[in-house]
Simulated assay, not measured.
Amino acid sequence: MDLTTMRPDDVALIQRATRTIRSQTGLSVAFGGLRGARSIRVSAASGAPLQHLSSIVVQPARGLGGLAWVSGQPTRVHDYGRAKEITHDFDAQILGEGIASLAVAPIVVDLQVRGLLYAGSREAGSLDSTMASLTRVASSVAQELHVRDLVDERVELRMRQAVVDDPAPQLRATLQQIAARTRDPETARELAELVAPPPPSVPEGALTRRQRDVLSLVAYGLTNAQIGARLSLSEVTVKSYLRAIMSRLSVRTRGQAVIEARRLGLL
């Protein structure tokens, strides 16, 4: 299972954050993005067409966002067009949307800036009263990203440990090599029987792809809530999948389901 496909969509998280910012602050526009290798590209917007803002690619010290990136602190300008404390790399996008005053808060995870969230007004003036809300939303996004990172680390560790702890693939490969070298037909037959997978007691494909995804995450030790977050499912839906899985495999617990699915070669 690919960790990148299991992780919830981080861009969707930023999109929800922009809507929350507008709702809490009453400002005209909110937008933001996550850090790539060397820059932060705007990937979500609320109150303005994304295509008008997605060409904003922030680098340290460039623009208002670059200033927040370097300092690690939220900042704002009350009259964007005349602000002297920032570079004006993105005037075409910001002023083109009629944004007169602009605030930005960095998304900081483990002391690293992972993204930026902006709130803008189409009227010049103080944004001091909106800074607390903007900062809270950025902090909430940072906490969620931190949780997702921890889950990724845990799943990856369990996947690696499973490979280390399970000698079966290496053992089967060794027995297959011995079977190929032996000149005794009876020994070759017995070895072939040893390395052959056990015949399934349920039809192949007894679990749907989604059920296998759920059960795989159970095997990695994730809770129902974590599984739901990974697969964009509610906890109720996860429980429903698990009940169906246990019924199909004729077991009574999620742990037994993992064991049985592995025995049948379904995981």
Score class of each variant (00 low, 15 high):
178 I>H: 09
35 R>P: 06
261 A>L: 00
93 Q>D: 12
222 L>C: 07
119 A>D: 07
15 Q>W: 03
168 A>E: 13
149 D>F: 12
22 R>M: 07
91 D>W: 07
153 E>N: 04
212 R>H: 05
28 S>G: 13
137 V>D: 05
222 L>I: 13
170 Q>V: 10
15 Q>F: 03
226 Q>W: 02
124 A>C: 07
73 Q>G: 02
78 H>T: 15
92 A>W: 00
191 L>W: 08
162 A>L: 14
15 Q>V: 05
35 R>F: 08
193 E>K: 13
160 R>Q: 14
260 E>F: 01
148 R>T: 05
81 G>P: 02
59 Q>C: 09
38 R>Q: 15
160 R>H: 12
1 M>H: 12
221 G>I: 04
36 G>M: 11
34 L>A: 07
248 R>D: 13
14 I>W: 06
43 S>R: 02
192 A>V: 05
137 V>L: 11
58 V>T: 14
139 S>F: 04
130 T>W: 05
16 R>T: 10
74 P>T: 13
129 S>L: 10
181 R>D: 13
129 S>C: 02
127 L>S: 05
22 R>F: 12
55 S>N: 14
17 A>D: 06
118 Y>F: 15
23 S>T: 13
145 L>N: 04
18 T>H: 03
242 L>C: 14
215 L>W: 09
185 P>H: 14
251 V>Q: 09
26 G>F: 11
108 V>E: 02
77 V>D: 08
158 R>V: 10
72 G>S: 01
33 G>A: 09
75 T>V: 13
23 S>Y: 08
137 V>K: 00
97 E>S: 05
85 E>S: 14
89 D>E: 15
121 S>E: 05
124 A>D: 06
115 G>Y: 00
255 G>E: 15
122 R>D: 07
99 I>A: 00
75 T>I: 10
240 S>M: 10
249 L>R: 07
4 T>V: 15
5 T>W: 09
46 S>P: 00
29 V>P: 01
185 P>K: 09
44 A>E: 10
125 G>I: 11
263 R>Y: 11
262 R>E: 04
37 A>M: 06
205 G>S: 04
156 E>P: 01
71 S>P: 07
258 V>M: 03
63 G>L: 00
107 I>F: 13
